[in-house]
Design a protein around this nucleic acid. Sequence first.
DNA 1: ATAGTTTGTGAGACTCGCATACGAACTGAA
DNA 2: TTCAGTTCGTATGCGAGTCTCACAAACTAT
Lengths: 386, 386
Amino acid sequence: MVSASLAGELNRARVLKTLYANGPLPRPELARLTGSTRATIGQIVTPLLDDGLLEELEPLASGVQGGKPARPLWFSDSGWPVGAMLVLPQGVKTAVVTAGGRVTAVTASSFPADVDADGVTRRVTAAMRKTMARAGVALHGIGIALGAMVDTEAGTVVRAGLAPVLDGLPLAQVVQADTGVPAYLDQDTRAQALGDLLFGAGRGESSFASVYVGAGIGAGFIFEGALHRGARGAGGEVGHAVVDRDGPLCRCGRRGCWEVLANRQALHAAAQAAGLPGAAGLDLSGLVALAPRDAAAARVLAGYTDSVALGIANLQQVLGVGLFILHGDPAGAGEPFRAAVEVAAREQAFAHPGGPTRVVLGTADDVATLRGAAALVLSKALHVAF
Amino acid sequence: MVSASLAGELNRARVLKTLYANGPLPRPELARLTGSTRATIGQIVTPLLDDGLLEELEPLASGVQGGKPARPLWFSDSGWPVGAMLVLPQGVKTAVVTAGGRVTAVTASSFPADVDADGVTRRVTAAMRKTMARAGVALHGIGIALGAMVDTEAGTVVRAGLAPVLDGLPLAQVVQADTGVPAYLDQDTRAQALGDLLFGAGRGESSFASVYVGAGIGAGFIFEGALHRGARGAGGEVGHAVVDRDGPLCRCGRRGCWEVLANRQALHAAAQAAGLPGAAGLDLSGLVALAPRDAAAARVLAGYTDSVALGIANLQQVLGVGLFILHGDPAGAGEPFRAAVEVAAREQAFAHPGGPTRVVLGTADDVATLRGAAALVLSKALHVAF
DNA sequence: ATAGTTTGTGAGACTCGCATACGAACTGAA
DNA sequence: TTCAGTTCGTATGCGAGTCTCACAAACTAT
């Protein structure tokens, strides 16, 4: 039930979401955007300023008609540090992230090829302790983004296709017990979507899909400004939606999954089958560079583009989402590839009332995901339903 | 922003949702389920009882320890009548539905084959006026479910694949102007999903997909107890997600859409290709009846089952939803078909933390959709975010 | 200097949920 | 029949939060 105090929490969350969506804003603008009054906004932000979460920036110049200069509010660069962690089959990255999105004290460590669950937990906790020591301040929580299917409520690993040794690991509890700081676990693509919403290309957008294309394919969905989680954290396993029921066998056991047609290995195999020069070491950006002067490379690229766009068009049909943010290999492939995917996706989808499908590039590195992992903590600790 | 009065609205909505999800409940039980107190519940329901939306049922028997008998609350059978309309390419159905889900004054009228947009609007408004006259009471609003892509916010038809004459028609305004009652337009499968949530197999479920399989395939999604609408009402066009990129050509111009593999015509074509007895007039329930004593029919049925299940498994991968309610042809095909689809869907999907995929049958007639259309009005007028 | 404008804050009114208490209605045993 | 025990439903005062209104602070232009 919404009591007065819960209403206060909801409104505080609304103010913070508005800040994330729009950047630094003075109180009157916050009041306008939230449909509230200056007095109420002042009442809400004063404790946040006292806590050090927010701070006042330099006063803006007065308008042509004069008036007291407005002082924009924004997240303090030093306030509210939280821990962020990205756990992938090959290794772990850790960082400290402030509520404003500043990323510091980044560490990276790799797992040996034959690592077991115990080795993973040891390396993960060691990396986090190291980052905490470098940060030197108390963290408000630790967000963990994991490249596997996750039970968000329980904080456990459900199925790690690329690293089966992790199945069933209660990673959130492990980290929380080791560090003494509350830890929250979620899927990497969902964290990535949160990162896009708060700090990336999804800022100010109400609904979009944040898609990762690399060795695997995954996605996180933002609907109406909030992260979509399926039942107990399932969902977003879009890489294993079938788009070609008689297609090649996927490692998941089904045929013609989007992932098996459009992941890095598929691109590689196509390049080698076409006998492209340097196919052994060719990645997507290399192929994009090669395509203008090699017809065979252009054909391989066009096929890959269509495969990526096919999955995007399907998502648009099913979800009605109009914006797709591409991370991973496409993020480093440049504007021509983005435009080609967008055109191909538009050709394969209907006209929608929300306007034509948009495809934009995210980041190739993992900063968006680290920031998203941090956002998991912000979401819980500030009771903001991102 | 959540003011005290908006908090009151939200809590009233919460109480109504709890009633819909659980059936008639006495005040103490409502308090327990909503995490509130008897006093607060009393404060909320008293005006609803005065308005005639709710009524008190016969007192329950006291418990073994005695005590004042509790009087369950439920929606009045006479109170809060709203109009419901289902507009399909072949005709229109209208009805009056109470908040408790009682459907009365049903009318049906068919469109001639060569009908134009003007003819549709005339027949639609005439049917509604007839229903209103039969109801004899003032309606609180009219909900319109349309078998086409709609722009929910604008209340217009975006793309009616099976009836292109309707493209661009502002149906909500037309009905509202003609009847003088507020009208709300949405897609038929979304209304159907609302009907399942409030009155059908989705009662008490937080997330599910309501799927229609017939001449076309569509779906509405309930996430966390609320209807999912994409950007400006798009989304749910799942029938045209590609599951076989080299498959047969669909009427939408793409190849291998789920719909072209698993709709009524596909079943029909497969039955004729297999030379089944009476293939010309064979429908799904006929095929189910024939399969046990005809191996060829069993093969056709298995192929169709797999095609239906493939799309369901894909939805589960993408959305993480664990419950699928099948309407249309499968709803009349009986338990064996349901079980076969469920088994096939489970085989094609991963284990999810939310438990195995469940497939249940909805209604073969249009009552669920008419009730859902009525729920569109309840949602708006009572400010309940269904 | 002064009027006009905008920002930020303080005081009181208002609304709603919550804790508490009390009458109403029922059971079962003395 | 009486009375204690239990549960239901409501009346009352309190607290938390937003909203309205008013006012000081800070700036521009005349």
